[in-house]
Every structure is written in C-alpha cells, then in structure tokens.
C-alpha cells in the first residue's frame, strides 16, 4: 500500500468515526465499560491468585519415618523427595526441633516444663520432612508416591485444604473465561452495529467507489481502521482510569484498613498493569478488528 493511500484510508477511518459521532461514542463508551469490567475483574483475579498462592505455599505434606531408621536412610529419602518435580521446597525437622516447636506452642510461659523432658523426648520418633508443593493439585500424586517409599511410616497431608484451593483456582479460571467471553460478545456486537450504521450512511459512496474501480481492500480498509480505532480508544480510556483507581485503592486500604492489609497483600500496581495493559489493548484492537471485519463481510458485498 502506498503511504498516501495509507494516510487517506486512515483519514477516512477517522472521518467515519466523526460522521457517525453518536454511534461511535456509544461504541467507545460500551467498549470502555467492557474493558473496564475486564480490567477490574483481572485485577481482582490476579490478587485472588496471589492470595491463593500465598495460602498454597503454607500447605505442607509431612513425612514421618519408621522407628529405628538410620540418619543415612533419612538423608536418602530426602534426596528422593527433593528430586520430585512437585516439590517446591522441603525442610527436615529433627525430633528435638519438633519437641521445641511443640513446647513453644503448647507450653508458652511454662518453658520449665519442657526442660523436664530434656533427656526423654516424648516426640523421639517425630523427626520428619515438611514438603511444600509447587501446585497443591499435585498433592495426592506425591502422597501416593511417598507412601510407597521404603522407610516412610506415615505421610500426613490436608486433602481438604488442597482440594479447596484446587477447586477455587479452577472456579476462578471458569468464571474468568465466562466473563471474558460475555464481554467479547457484547463488544463485538456493538462495534458491528456502529460499522453497520457507517456502511449504510456511506452506501452511495461505496457504490461509486466500486464503479470507478476501487479494490475491495480499498473499500474495506476505512471500516477496519474505524473498528480498530474505536477498540483502541475504548481500551485505553478504562486502563488510565483503572490505573489511578487501583493505585489509590491500595494506598487507601493500607491507610484505613491496616488489619486487612496485614491479612491480604495487594499486588503492586505495576505488577498488575504490566500484563493488563498489553492484554486489554490487544483485546480492544482485536474486538474492533473482528467486529468491523465480520460486519463488512455481512453487509458490504465487496
């Protein structure tokens, strides 16, 4: 395409938006609303996933050893476990450390009672590995494997925690996809309406263009430009709004609800927007392109 033709096509696309002001504004507004909702939802989901990840990182599988097992075998078991792909981190807790931890929790303020057991550790057979997983949904696999390892007496895990977190993650995934699909359909429908109006307004001009030898590509291009521009503006505006809203919200929560910010760690604004900005812009431009392309195919016999 010649540069002058590109400029002309681009100008025509902008003119289409201008000529069709009301519909274009309605499209941009609705697109903005859709992308705003998407962004809002995305930020919430990202934060939820962050929280879930934090909780997940606290879910551990505990492996106890058979009585009388030697230190060498315990180390071997440790090596076997650390090689598993499901394992993110692991820690060895000796019997003494286990008794110390127990004492800290249950004998707070009466440490002298713990000292009474110095030579006779009630948790003598309680040395264990604490294993932290990459993904809690893999917990049952790992547990089955660990139970088969020689020298392992008992494997303790919380199926409930793992299942709840896995289900919750899956739910978030389904809801995200559902909402995104609905927003996509609404936005495509609206862009399509705007372009349809643009086509009907310019029907005569299109007929003239065709009669004097304009290619299909030349006729279509301004409408594609129109759709893309609406998508671009419609996604850029809510991103700016969301950026300020999100950054203010974090500061506000940290200021006013200290108890909440101690419990939940909001992701920093840049962390959320480094993905949200390209995704929302691509989504907006993509919807604009798709909406206008589909409409042209339907209403413009060129």
């Amino acid at each position: 395409m010649r540069f002058s033709t590109f400029v002309y096509t681009f100008k025509q696309g902008v003119k289409n938006i201008w000529r069709n002001k009301i519909f274009s504004l309605a499209s941009i507004a609705t697109m903005s609303a859709c992308i705003f909702l998407f962004g809002l939802f995305y930020a919430v989901v990202m934060n939820f996933q962050n929280i879930v990840k934090e909780v997940e990182s606290g879910v551990a599988v505990t492996v106890f050893f058979e009585e009388g097992i030697g230190a060498e075998r315990i180390e071997e078991i440790g090596d076997i476990i650390s090689k598993r792909t499901e394992v993110a981190d692991m820690r060895y807790v000796s019997a003494d450390e286990a008794w110390e931890e127990f004492g800290e929790i249950y004998f707070e303020g009466a440490e002298d009672m713990v000292e009474g057991f110095e030579t006779d550790n009630p948790l003598a057979e309680s040395s264990h590995y604490e294993i932290y997983l990459n993904d809690v949904s893999q917990q049952s696999n790992l547990v089955t494997y660990l139970e088969s390892v020689e020298g392992v007496r008992e494997v303790r895990s919380s199926d409930l925690a793992a299942n709840v977190l896995t289900d919750f993650n899956r739910l978030i995934g389904y809801v995200s996809v559902g909402i995104i699909l609905i927003l996509l359909c609404v936005a495509i429908f609206l862009i399509s309406n705007t372009v349809t109006t643009g086509i009907s307004v310019r029907r005569e001009e299109i007929a003239i263009m065709k009669l004097i030898g304009a290619t299909d590509y030349f006729v279509r291009s301004p409408f594609i430009v129109e759709g893309i521009l609406i998508g671009l503006i419609g996604s850029a505006l809510p991103l700016v709004l969301l950026y300020f809203m999100y950054s203010r919200l974090i500061v506000y929560v940290a200021d006013k609800f200290i108890w909440l910010s101690n419990m939940l760690h909001f992701l920093p604004v840049n962390e959320v927007f480094k993905t949200l900005v390209p995704v929302a812009l691509i989504l907006g431009v993509g919807i604009g392109f798709l909406g206008s392309r589909l409409t042209i195919r339907k209403h413009l016999n060129v």
Partner: peptide, 11 residues
C-alpha cells in the same frame, strides 16, 4: 480526486 485516490494514484 476521489476517482484517482481509489486507484492509489500518487498525490
């Protein structure tokens, strides 16, 4: 000019 633009004639 429109008739020339549609066939990508240089400005």
């Amino acid at each position: 000019a429109f008739a020339q633009r549609v066939i990508a004639t240089p400005t």
